[in-house]
Computed example of a mutant assay.
Amino acid sequence: MLVTYGTTNGSTARIAEAVADVLRKDGLTVESLPARSVTSVTPYDAVVVGGGLYAGRWHKDARRFVRRHRPELAKRPVWFFSSGPLDATVSERDIPPVRGVRRAMTRLEVREHVTFGGCLQEGAKGRVAGMILRSGKGGDFRDFGAIETWAEGVADVLTRT
């Protein structure tokens, strides 16, 4: 199984690692890799793709990964996750996938999508990140309990078949 992700400052990578850890605990063989470094999905029976949200779009590496590997992804079970809201909204309600992710989900018959809270802390790269931090709106809104519960659901589907 492959867990791959697009991230700028590492928050989405940490979520991907948490997902991969749960899948491994459930007995699955898992690789977790940055989306830009994956050259083929052929060796994998299933794939989880995660992307950080930036201005209403998935991270470019996640978008490019899905576009580049679309034919092979269509042949296997795929799950998506997004990370990014820098507030408590994900704990209050489900946040639907952004338009581009929703379109990819339809094309690939993605099993499920979930949005997790994001994390933006001092030292983050990028002009916009700096502006957000200076405005006092940064912080860590990831809920690792929710992330692990979601990953357990993915593992349940894969270990049942």
Rank of each mutant, 00 (worst) to 15 (best):
T4C: 15
T4A: 14
Y5P: 10
G6R: 03
T8E: 15
N9E: 10
N9A: 12
R14D: 15
A16V: 09
E17M: 15
V19E: 01
D21I: 01
K25W: 09
D26V: 04
L28S: 06
T29R: 13
T29E: 15
L33T: 13
P34F: 08
A35W: 01
R36P: 00
S37H: 12
S37L: 07
S40K: 00
S40L: 00
T42D: 15
P43V: 07
A46N: 08
V47R: 00
V48S: 05
V49C: 10
G52D: 08
G52N: 02
G56S: 11
R57N: 14
W58C: 06
H59E: 13
H59A: 15
K60C: 10
D61N: 14
A62P: 09
R63P: 06
V66K: 04
R67H: 12
R68M: 00
R68L: 00
H69K: 10
R70N: 05
R70L: 14
P71I: 02
E72G: 12
L73F: 05
L73A: 09
R76Q: 08
W79M: 12
W79C: 13
S82F: 01
S83L: 11
G84Y: 08
V90A: 14
S91Y: 03
S91P: 05
S91K: 14
E92W: 01
D94K: 03
P96D: 13
R99M: 05
V101Q: 12
R103Y: 06
R103A: 15
L108I: 04
E109F: 01
V110M: 03
V110A: 06
E112G: 11
T115F: 05
F116I: 01
G117I: 00
L120H: 04
E122S: 05
E122M: 01
E122R: 07
G123L: 07
R127E: 13
R127P: 09
V128Y: 09
V128D: 10
G130V: 02
G130I: 02
M131V: 10
M131I: 13
M131A: 15
I132W: 07
L133F: 03
R134I: 02
G138C: 06
D140H: 10
F144W: 05
G145W: 02
G145M: 02
A151N: 08
D156S: 14
D156L: 07
L158R: 07
R160S: 11
